[in-house]
Design a protein around this nucleic acid. Structure first.
Length: 558
RNA sequence: GCUCCUAUAGUGUAGUCCGGUUAAGCAUUUUGGCUUCUCAAGCCAAAGACUCGGGUUCAAAUCCCGAUGGGAGCACCA
């Protein structure tokens, strides 16, 4: 073994490493370390005296099997194992609030939880977390559903938190009667101040009877802001969440499905605790800004003697320079800096789709991030790399020229030509009608020298006879194939003008990037018009793009 | 300010719980080569990391203590 190690590391080895290897493979030696280490030192020094050629021949003679190449270590597939998980009995859930358009962060939570359900043959619940009528709208509810469907996520159960309003009231009253909750009629600022200063208020001293009466009053007499139900936690706790948090509050806004039926609404903590418990959720994974709520949720359920789920946390996912929060996106839309939530520069699902990102790529990408709690600020090119693999195989190859320059070619032998739609896969062929007038890209036109040969892809070689604003050339039969520029082209007669949109990073640092959207006028083949909207294409030597409309394409990535 | 979480190559991660079978694996990125009628894809190769300082141990990315960087919470939002 020492011999092998020495050979692998330039003819020299160290006794400590050999010792480690031996103890690693043969744990039975671990209590005889002193005895064997002496032997190892001797062996090692004798081996180090040999030249590497001698070592090699020694290995060949006595241990030829060691020369076989090492096996690669296999990477763990998918997500790490869940604690306390039983095959077939795992229930996970994804509880978005319908208060905005779904984005990559939603995708992460949904994908991780659905993967876990799948991994254990369990069930997966979509629960619209709609307990704040002021923020939630049907429009968002629908957008979330559309987004999840696009991602290909399937649910066993679909429900809304607000389905269980009566149950929340029941449990709320139970907490009051247990003395675990009380009605607080302090002002909002005072509650906040007391929590900061770890001081209890008078309301927390009230007896159960009074609290029950006040609960009744919350139904009609109290106005929003007059009274809240607070959990009796611990005003001295280090975890600020435990300092008597709010369980219910009065909101008079119209709920998007229930209208004005209820005016007392449970807070997030109350709702999540009860819902996860009664829905049978075994494993509740959410992003780590909720980490401090774990203790509270457990305490609420303990107080009610209800079953507790295992809670886990993962880091938020954001892309560098692509804001996720409505707080930032909304003003951009209002100022016209971004067109809408489907603007290709945004990390919303709608935008990602429009940009040409495939749902499978998002899934792979998110799975590759793992389940860490360290902050993830992923560069967008990581997603692009996954996407390229999905998109390459079935993207039709088309010619497109930017900054077009005219090229006239003499002696063309044909008036039409067939070109395959994909270099490897069979995606059919298209016929292009040609005459002597072509467009080529400005960049290419500039780099060509007069008198040299270029190859027009799929067509043949051309020798350039005149350089300038407009170029002229002559067709060459059986020209050189290697080591000449091979460029794409478009016939002038049938060239179809489209707008090419190239999305770039929205923010550089904290600054809005004024050049975040580049628009080019380009020419492509008429075949473009026959493609379906939303189809992914590769413009040869330019990159992958998605057809947005007959007159517009969006650059996906290289 | 207080509390909690977190720290592995340029980037994202595996390994950390239970110290040794791996002088740190994978992906991406970059560079070079092969292949190719695309600067794509595919194939091959190279480059590159355990935040810092102590301690425990025959042995530390892994355990302990301290420091530092990053993030979050301290809402009648979720």
């Amino acid at each position: 073994m020492a011999l092998q190690n020495a050979f692998e590391h330039g003819g020299e080895t160290r006794d400590k490493i050999i010792l480690g290897k031996i103890l690693g493979t043969k744990p039975e030696f671990r209590n005889k370390v002193k005895e064997i280490s002496k032997d190892i030192t001797e062996i090692v020094s004798s081996i180090n005296k040999l030249s590497s050629e001698e070592q090699e021949s020694e290995i060949k003679e006595n241990f030829p099997e060691l020369l076989a190449p090492k096996e690669k270590i296999e990477e763990r597939e998918g997500l790490p194992e869940l604690k306390d998980a039983e095959q077939g009995k795992v229930i996970t859930r994804f509880p978005p609030e319908p208060n905005g358009y779904p984005h990559i962060g939603h995708a992460k939570a949904a994908i991780i939880n659905s993967e876990y359900a799948k991994m254990y043959g369990g069930k997966f619940i979509l629960r619209m977390d709609d307990t704040n009528p002021e923020a939630e709208r049907m429009e968002y509810h629908a957008a979330i559903k559309v987004g999840l469907e696009w991602l290909g996520i399937e649910f066993d159960i679909v429900k809304s938190t607000s389905d269980d309003m009566e149950l929340f009231y029941e449990k709320g009253i139970e907490l009051i009667n247990l003395g675990k909750a009380y009605i607080c009629t302090c002002k909002r600022e005072d509650i906040s101040k007391n929590r900061r200063e770890r001081k209890a208020c008078k309301c927390s001293m009230e007896d159960i009877e009074k609290n029950n009466k006040n609960w009744e009053k919350m139904n009609d007499k109290f106005k929003p802001g007059d009274a809240v139900v607070r959990f009796r936690g611990d005003m001295k706790a280090d975890n600020a969440v435990m300092r008597d948090p709010v369980l219910f509050r009065i909101i008079e806004g119209k709920h998007y499905t229930l209208g004005e039926k209820y005016r007392i609404w449970p807070s997030y903590d109350m709702a999540v605790a009860i819902e996860d418990s009664i829905d049978g959720v075994t494993h509740a994974y959410r992003s780590k800004e909720f980490e401090l709520r774990k203790e509270l949720i457990d305490e609420i359920l303990d107080a009610l003697k209800m079953r507790k789920p295992t809670q886990g946390f993962f880091s938020r996912l954001e892309f560098k320079g692509m804001p996720i929060s409505k707080r930032i996106i909304k003003p951009l839309i209002e100022e016209g800096k971004v067109t809408w939530y489907d603007d290709p520069r945004l990390p919303t699902l709608e935008a990602l789709k429009r940009r040409g990102i495939k749902p499978e790529a998002i899934r792979k990408f998110i799975m590759s991030l793992g389940l860490t709690k360290a902050n993830t600020l992923a560069p967008f090119d990581a997603l692009e790399a996954f996407n390229r693999k999905f998109v390459d195989a079935d993207s039709i190859r088309l010619f497109m020229v930017s900054n077009a320059k005219k090229l006239t070619i003499k002696n063309l032998p044909t008036s039409s030509i067939e070109i395959p739609n994909h270099p490897i896969n069979d995606m059919g062929k298209r016929t292009i009608e040609i005459d002597e007038n072509f467009y080529i890209s400005g960049d290419d036109a500039q780099s060509i020298k007069e008198g040299t040969q270029i190859r027009l892809l799929g067509l043949g070689n051309v020798v350039i006879t005149k350089q300038g604003i407009e170029l002229e050339g002559e067709f060459v039969e059986n020209g050189e194939r290697k080591d000449i520029p091979k460029i794409q082209w478009v016939p002038q007669k049938t060239a179809h003008k489209i707008k090419m949109i190239i999305p770039k990073t929205l923010f550089i640092g904290d600054e809005f990037n004024e050049d975040s959207l580049e628009e080019l006028d380009v020419f492509t083949e008429p075949h473009y018009l026959q493609l379906k909207e939303g189809e992914e294409i590769q413009f040869v030597r330019f990159g992958y793009c998605r057809k947005d409309s007959q007159n517009q394409a969006i650059f996906t990535h290289k």
